[in-house]
């Protein structure tokens, strides 16, 4: 109980009373959470982009409504809704199968789902913009040249969509990474939560929030460097065609 008397380097260190290990693990969990929600958002976002362009009016309207709601409601509210609402939903579902209530789902699952649902709304916009950027004439020309659907997609559509989609996707990823901090309210030991717990129990908030800021800056700048590399390779590919 005397850990508050420790100097800063010991509190941030990797010894038994140091929070260094926990903070680094929290940063790893933040990264995993962001990757999971980005993946969920990509799959659902692609589906939404496809639905928006669908000829069935109700489907397109549903996808539009999803986008309006998810981009108009605070992310914090979505996280809170899933966190508090999920046990009830799961109990209802389990009840349908005649099973006992399974309690609350893992925080990682609800957290990545919540951030993923928000991410999907933004990614749908990105994908839609990418699809619209492919000139119709090119697809028709490819058809005329006798290209099959797969070859057409691979040679004509995909390179151009990627070229248009990668920079804004990098943006969505950055937002995703920062939004993952909201999952802290569910108690999941990601970077934000860990720094809050450490700040509260050692009563050294400035030290631990500063440490968390440094780790977040490392995550955001490293990942933007990775995205720049992917973009460079993507445009090479698009240029080769």
């Amino acid at each position: 109980m005397s850990e508050q008397d420790l100097p800063a380097f010991a509190l941030l260190g990797f010894g038994t009373d140091g929070w260094g290990r926990v903070l680094v693990l929290g940063a790893v969990l933040t990264l995993a959470l962001s990757l999971a929600s980005m993946t969920i958002g990509s799959v659902l976002g692609a589906l939404l982009a496809w639905a928006r362009g669908s000829r069935r009016g109700w489907l397109a309207r549903l996808a539009t409504a999803y986008g309006v709601i998810m981009r108009g409601v605070p992310e914090l509210l979505v996280v809170l809704l899933l966190y508090f609402g999920a046990p009830g939903l799961m109990a209802a579902v389990a009840g349908l199968f005649g099973l006992p209530a399974p309690g609350s789902p893992p925080a990682f699952l609800t957290g990545s789902l919540a951030i993923g649902l928000v991410s999907a709304a933004y990614q749908a916009e990105v994908f839609r913009g990418g699809l619209l950027a492919v000139p119709k004439g090119q697809v028709e020309a490819a058809l005329a040249a006798g290209m099959g659907p797969w070859l057409r997609f691979r040679r004509i559509v995909l390179p151009q969509v990627l070229h248009h989609v990668l920079p804004p996707l990098g943006n969505v990823w950055q937002f995703n990474l920062k939004d993952s901090a909201l999952v802290a309210i569910t108690g999941l030991a990601e970077l934000m939560r860990v720094s809050l717990v450490a700040a509260g129990s050692t009563r050294r908030p400035f030290l631990f929030f500063a440490a968390a800021m440094v780790l977040y800056l490392a995550l955001t700048s490293l990942s933007s460097a990775v995205f720049r590399r992917i973009e460079a390779r993507g445009s090479q590919w698009a240029g080769r065609r």
């Binding site: 920062k178 939004d179 720094s195 929030f209 500063a210 968390a212 977040y216 700048s221």
Partner: peptide, 11 residues
């Protein structure tokens, strides 16, 4: 731009 707003608010 590189850190979450939530963390900035707590800071």
């Amino acid at each position: 731009r590189g850190t979450p707003l939530l963390l900035q608010i707590f800071m």
